[in-house]
């Protein structure tokens, strides 16, 4: 397995999420879920597993919603995605399609040309679309879950483009759909916290609790064993040798605080160092040295730059003191990777 910090992993290379995925399905059988987690922890990859390997009796559809700026876009994209999963018969004729045709859309060579109206009844389109797929799935006794990534980005986009009110309506509509259909579930995630956005809506006088029927799932790092296994796999993928590969792997896991994204980063850095020197064996000390170097590097290659701004949010008045302590730590030749990364976890 090759180190790939930030990129897309093949399903078999996503390590240490089996139990989590199992728990998520288990919870989904009862209610919808929203995931909270900090950036780069692996939310999207968890969704990738769930999209590609749903258990029996589940249909799962993944969508990244950050591209949408208004509720109509959202509704239409869900409509289009759903069409792919309807039976042929249903695809030819369904409630949502009928509505769109009635609104002035046209079908050309099996492709629906959307009506060119400024304000389409997005709520209706949405509700019909969900009804179409949910009902068809129910016949087979099948549940459907929408894996909606980057929901908060979309809500913020909508609030900005169409006003907070519309964003609120989207949330309320989704909530009521969840209550209407027994076999309809949503799994939401986002790289900025959903509560940030809802907080903003509440400032506008929004009093509903649009998430109170959903289960909140906090995604954290992977387990220590898995982190060590991942490190070892990546070391092998990079052709890095060690007299005690287990020790090197567990040092990587320790330094990265079991955060897979940073594990990928550390190994990639080790690999890049290897190509520059003739040395072909690595040690646990190399890991410590590399982590320290990255943390104190001016270029901030692992993008830790946010610590400075973060600190203010979390420590308020004491920010200055905290900063001085961190500066001191950064100067000391000790491994602080762990501590720094842990601090970061308070993000969401």
């Amino acid at each position: 397995m090759k180190a790939n910090p930030g990129g897309r992993l093949a399903i078999k290379d996503i390590i240490g999420r089996d139990k989590l995925v199992e728990d998520l399905w288990e919870t989904l059988s009862r209610q919808s879920v929203y995931m909270t987690a900090e950036r780069r922890i692996g939310k999207t990859h968890v969704m990738n597993i769930m999209c590609q390997q749903p258990p029996k009796g589940w249909l799962s559809i993944y969508q990244d919603l950050e591209k949408h700026h208004n509720a109509t876009d959202f509704a239409i994209s869900v409509y289009q995605e759903v069409q792919k999963y309807l039976s042929t018969k249903k695809r030819v004729s369904n409630q949502a399609k009928k509505l769109l045709l009635a609104l002035g859309g046209a079908e050309v060579k099996g492709v629906l040309k959307l009506p060119e109206k400024a304000d389409l009844p997005w709520k209706q389109i949405f509700e019909h679309t969900i009804a179409d797929i949910v009902k068809e799935q129910a016949v087979e006794d099948c549940n459907i879950v929408f894996l909606w990534d980057e929901m908060p980005y979309m809500l913020a986009n909508i609030a900005t483009a169409e006003g907070e009110q519309v964003a609120i309506e989207v949330l309320d509509m989704l909530r009521s759909l969840r209550q209407t259909y027994k076999n309809f579930r949503v799994l939401m995630a986002g790289s900025v916290g959903l509560h940030h956005v809802i907080g903003r809506l509440k400032e506008q006088g929004y009093t509903n609790e649009p998430l109170n029927d959903m289960y909140q799932f906090d995604i954290t790092t992977i387990g220590k064993k898995d982190a060590e296994y991942l490190s070892q796999q990546l070391l092998q993928g990079a052709n890095l040798q060690a007299s005690d590969i287990g020790a090197v792997a567990s040092m990587i896991a320790l330094q990265a605080d079991n955060f897979p994204f940073y594990i990928h980063h550390i190994v990639r850095e080790m690999e890049s160092e290897k190509t520059q020197s003739a040395k072909n064996k690595v040690t646990a000390e190399d890991v410590e040295r590399i982590v320290l170097r990255q943390l104190t590097n001016e270029n901030d290659p692992w993008e830790f730059r946010h610590y400075e701004t973060r600190i203010k949010d979390y420590y308020g008045d004491r920010a200055l003191v905290v900063k001085i302590i961190l500066d001191e730590l950064a100067l000391k030749k000790k491994s602080i990777g762990k501590r720094v990364i842990r601090k970061d976890k308070t993000t969401n």
Binding site: G6, R40, E303, R310
Partner: peptide, 9 residues
């Protein structure tokens, strides 16, 4: 490099 921007990391 900003944590709140889409292409962070």
């Amino acid at each position: 490099t900003h944590r709140h921007d889409p292409f962070f990391g």
